[in-house]
Design a binder for these strands. Structure first.
Lengths: 157, 157
DNA sequence: ATATTATGGTTGCAATCGAAACTATAAGTC
DNA sequence: GACTTATAGTTTCGATTGCAACCATAATAT
């Protein structure tokens, strides 16, 4: 007699559904004002913190497929939000930087997405919010996602 | 002076990355043995708990797009895992059921995915695991995802 | 120096997905 | 009963995605 399986309680399913819902809603908060998609957003956010930066670096810090990042970089370059410059150290690399315009737009975008994130937290009580953050961190560690400390550890050793 | 934005700490990003990673790994645990994808898996899991069941019911309980479910149902019907029967009550509906073969295969599949889920939990300490579960529940409630209680509430009123 | 292997990045291709249009049936309105 | 609106489900189409092949450059081995 096989036990019953409860999809509604199954972690991978719940995570996937939740992430999808959150992404959808977040995209809708800025898609009208700013014509960018999620991969583009990830490139901008990464560059905003660490500039200049290679596409490969964006790939590893966001864990997004390199072809996706490549296309996001191309389109952002076309629209003038970022610049690609050859690297002196390594001829294969291209150093990415936000343009003045790109940084200006990004600075407009940030408050919008932060407001969205805040609206999620605000609707939860403090304790649930901290539970979520710490639970996610724990799972990130298990999967060696997140801070690339895990990967670094391997590489360094 | 714009403050810096930390993508690595941004909830929507972390959730999306985590869900993607979990889905990928889970799929790899069964993709070799069983030739099904995630939408198909969701249909099977839903039917296993509530049979017979309409496609619409699978859509609302999994929050997966109806065209995706329609295609999953079609392919599962072709491979003989489920059956589609006309409904007496409503000519538009088709009642879905697992076939004997489908139920047998599903019963083989369940331990594999449960083992995967268990391996995640086993690698976390008890407290983090509960934090994660309760944090996810809280966010599900905020977004009115999960138990369709929220939707029901609206409808009932 | 040359051959081999590895890496950063781009692109072609096939699969997937979701929005919207469409079919068929049901429910509500006049 | 005819008309309008709503719902279940399918299909077409455009956009996005990831894999794999590819190009260019760099690092390593012989």
């Amino acid at each position: 007699m096989p036990g019953i399986f409860d999809l509604q309680n199954f972690l991978p399913f719940r995570l996937s559904r939740l992430a999808h819902e959150v992404s959808q809603r977040m995209a809708s908060t800025y898609s009208e004002k700013f014509d960018i998609d999620i991969p583009q957003w990830r490139v901008l956010a990464t560059l905003s913190a660490k500039e200049p930066c290679t596409a490969q670096s964006v790939v590893s810090s966001t864990r997004t497929h390199k072809s996706t990042i490549s296309r996001a970089v191309s389109s952002l370059t076309e629209t003038g939000w970022i610049e690609r410059a050859p690297s002196d150290e390594d001829g294969r690399e291209r150093l990415l930087r936000l343009t003045t315009e790109g940084r200006r737009k990004f600075n407009e975008l940030v408050p919008v997405v932060l407001a969205f994130e805040h609206s999620l937290y605000a609707a939860m009580d403090q304790e649930s919010m901290q539970n979520l953050a710490s639970g996610i961190s724990a799972l990130e560690n298990v999967l060696e996602v997140g801070t690339n400390s895990a990967k670094s550890k391997k590489v360094v050793l």
